[in-house]
Design a protein around this nucleic acid. Structure first.
Lengths: 90, 90, 90, 90
DNA sequence: AACGTTGAAATAGTTC
DNA sequence: GAACTATTTCAACGTT
């Protein structure tokens, strides 16, 4: 029975280590990102804005329009309500 | 149709204001925390250590929960394995 | 000497408990927030958008304009560069 | 003046693209992780438990670091106390 | 007082 | 669609 444990243990260990290795690589790349942003900041750029651009580029154009439309709708509704409170049952 | 907007606007405004009210209360409490820490510091205590202690006390509770979860998980896994002992001598 | 520890210990305990009490209140309020959002969701509103509105309202209007200007500037600069790459030394 | 924009635009574009490139690599590695987990699952292992183990191993390391930090913190606090024994018999 | 560092909170994505 | 995990964002803190 110790064999069973041994074999499975070896496999488990192998899987675990493969994952941990990949995660180490990801961590390195994230370090790299930090460095790039630090460099950009050193050049005088606004890092927050850069991140925002990256996010926007990731978004599909359609989604962006859809999102803006809904946001605009909600804010207009609120504004309307402030100007003319409670004409609900007109 | 402006009615529709008006009604929804009122609801939106109400939800937003409830949230903003709650967040204002939270902000006050956070001010309170800062004051307590400032007072402790004034008494000569090391604020960083106090925070560590608080953190550890939180962790203790969480880890106890976590521990139970993992233990449960492992025991289930063992049970599964017993039911389907699998592939060993393949 | 046990007195020193005792006295300080009492004070430490008191500070810790005051903080933990405040944090418990904050946790409750956060629960309250969750409930409000859940209720809004139940009414058919888009919680994500509501959160965005709250964030926007927190921002000062000037900051918001400034932010939009800079974002726009950066994106235009990038677009310009894409259309007319490297006429730098003209 | 369009030159100024052009130059900055080029820099902005370059930073953005460097980040996007890094993020693409990270995305690939995450794909790799998924494949490893899928393979493990194919071998009959419980992926959830594997993830638990990985998490625990990370925590162990972090806690060791944390432990050292806290220990250091406490010892320094003791030293401080020795230098300024303070207020006892006031 | 600006800067980077760190820790906590919010948000997004993923899985069941 | 609900819960959980992972990522990203924001705020506090000490440091220079």
């Amino acid at each position: 029975m110790s064999d069973t444990v041994g074999i499975a243990g070896g496999q488990i260990r192998a899987f675990i280590e493969r994952i941990e290795h990949i995660e180490a690589e990801i961590a390195e790349l994230n370090e790299g990102k930090k460095e790039v942003f630090a460099e950009a900041k050193g050049e005088g750029f606004d890092v927050k804005i850069l991140k925002e651009i990256i996010k926007l580029r990731k978004q599909d154009q359609e989604e962006r329009d859809e999102h803006d439309t809904v946001l605009d709708l909600y804010m207009r509704a609120m504004d309307e309500d402030e100007k003319a409170p409670a004409k609900k049952a007109a």
